[in-house]
Simulated assay, not measured.
Amino acid sequence: SVAASLTMLALSNHDAPFALVSGLASPGLGEYVLVVPLGLAAGVLAPLFLRLLAFGKRQFRALPLALPWRMALGGLLMGGIAVWVPEVCGNGYAPIIGILQGQALSVPVPLALLAKIAATALIVGAGAVGGIFTPSLFIGAALGAMVAGAAALIPALPQGDATLIALIGMGAFMAAVSHAPLMAILMVFEMTMNAQLLLPLMAGSILAYAVSRALRSRSLYDVLNRRHAHQAKVQALPDTELMALLEPVIRHLTPATTIDQACRQFEQTRTRYLYVVDEAGQFLGAVSIHQLAALICAAPERREAPVGPLIETAFDLLPAHASLKDAWSMFAMSPLERIPVVDNLDHRRFLGVVSKRNVLDRLRLLAER
């Protein structure tokens, strides 16, 4: 997104991709004060909006009607709303422009907001694909206009520019419903190309996201919902000790092992790494078969030299008290198939290894319970 905007600027196109507004004022004290109630309001309204969409889907699916008839019913009901509030028709772009330019709608903004929420719930519930993204922008703009209008009724409060507050509301509500605040911030910024708007926009979007996330873990997008569900399962894993999955390692190297002896060990074990343990049983590191092969090819005369220079001392380790969750997290970030286990990370007495296969098998069994 940033690269695309920079490319447009490099090609001498300095206009915003979406000509929502022009000549924006600079944010002042009023905007920063109103960011707080606006972010809180967007964070509270977004979960209610998502629950209403889910409720609409459940109610329409319960009807004994085929999908085309359910969609026709949803369109009929939405058309009834449009008779009184025509702004609910379309994707909401025209009423957004009206709000940002201070133009009067056919009904007061609060009624237009409620009508748009109801119409969106009807159409989405009936089974129509899409139609949530731009209505969310409209809801955010209307919410910002309402906050700015409410502040204007209290002269003692610092007054903010209604257009700026509406733009911040667009980003805040989109961040709250999508759980993607960075996307919302960049999107509204690109609509204006006004860098001065970034700070209050970031504050409002992050606040709305935090409140919405605390009230409802599910977002507008299923891909994020699946990711959050997966993370929740990982966090719910019991802190099972790894010692039950520990595998002993019979063959390992010592600092005095020669390169030729290490080659024979690799032939017998057929592994990528051999671990190096001193006489006291302390884990010193590992030798990679790839480094060993490269050394033999480059300097075959060194076959009787010790493996000391080839030892990788910065090697992933798990302490004996680690949990299954700790092992899963390390395997998720490491290409290793086996990770050495030591008594603790200070003394590093080598105990054995735990394999990715055994960890995944145990996780599968726990998930099926």
Rank of each mutant, 00 (worst) to 15 (best):
S217G: 15
A72D: 02
A166H: 07
L242R: 12
M243Y: 04
H179N: 09
D222S: 11
I132Q: 15
Q101P: 03
V21R: 05
A118S: 08
Y275R: 09
R349V: 13
T254K: 10
M202G: 01
Q103D: 09
N225M: 02
W328Y: 14
Q282G: 13
G80R: 00
R357S: 12
T163C: 13
G90L: 13
R251I: 05
R251F: 05
L143R: 08
L50F: 06
A16C: 05
A236V: 05
I132K: 15
R264L: 11
N358G: 08
V36G: 01
R357L: 09
R348C: 10
A367C: 02
R338T: 10
A41C: 15
L24Y: 09
D222F: 01
E190A: 02
I259L: 15
E241K: 14
W69V: 10
A294N: 13
H321G: 09
P340Y: 12
L242F: 07
A244M: 09
I206H: 02
K325D: 05
V188P: 00
Q231I: 06
G102T: 06
A166D: 06
G130P: 12
A176W: 13
P300C: 13
L153H: 11
L20S: 04
G90S: 04
V129N: 08
L186Q: 00
A66E: 14
L363V: 03
A293T: 14
R302N: 09
P135M: 05
F283N: 05
L197W: 06
R51H: 08
S26Q: 14
A82N: 02
A112M: 12
F331T: 02
F266Y: 05
L363T: 04
M330F: 02
T163H: 05
D343F: 06
A294Y: 11
I123C: 14
L9P: 00
A104E: 15
P309E: 02
I185S: 01
A54H: 04
P340T: 07
T254L: 04
P306D: 08
L345T: 06
L153W: 10
I289Y: 08
S205H: 01
A148M: 14
P68Q: 05
L324N: 01
L63H: 13
I339F: 13
P335G: 03
Q159H: 12
P37K: 08
M333F: 09
L317V: 14
A152C: 07
L67E: 10
A19V: 03
L224S: 00
T269S: 10
A203L: 15
A314T: 07
L111P: 04
R272H: 15
L77P: 03
T269V: 08
G169A: 05
G23M: 08
P300Q: 11
Y32R: 02
G140H: 02
H252S: 10
R302H: 11
A208I: 07
N344K: 06
K57Q: 14
P248T: 12
V44Q: 11
R61E: 15
D278N: 15
D161M: 10
L9A: 12
R338H: 13
Q291L: 12
A294M: 14
D278G: 06
P37V: 03
P181N: 04
R70D: 06
C297L: 15
A175G: 07
T134G: 12
G43D: 11
S22W: 00
A156P: 00
L34P: 09
T271F: 02
G352Y: 12
F49Y: 15
L73G: 07
